[in-house]
Amino acid sequence: MPVQYYIFLSIVLFCIGVMGVLMRRNAIIIFMCVELMLNAVNLLMVAFSKMWADAGRVDAAGAQIFVFFIMVVAAAEVAVGLAIIVMVYRKSQSVDINIMNRLKN
């Protein structure tokens, strides 16, 4: 399959993620959309790795290692992020980010 298909699929997934972050109000769903963005990146990274390997680059596997780093960092972010969301939920019994407008006053 040509690499263009993967590029289009990844960009569509990435844009769904971006739209979700911008439009949804629930912190958990925003968080899931961020994860969707990261996974779109992972998919694209692996596709590019295959593309450059086919083009004869010997170090193309580096991109696949990069994907593992993204996964690990995403896991670290989940650990911190879910803890923060739980903390906010305990305070306000809600994970709706509209409550954050309180900060402005």
């Binding site: 912190a27 961020v34 992020g81 923060i84």
Partner: peptide, 19 residues
């Protein structure tokens, strides 16, 4: 509550920009 909300806001914006 201001501190935890700041944290949540920072976290959501920060991870979005990481993406």
């Amino acid at each position: 509550p201001k501190s935890s909300e700041a944290s949540l806001k920072y976290f959501l914006m920060g991870s979005f920009s990481t993406g």
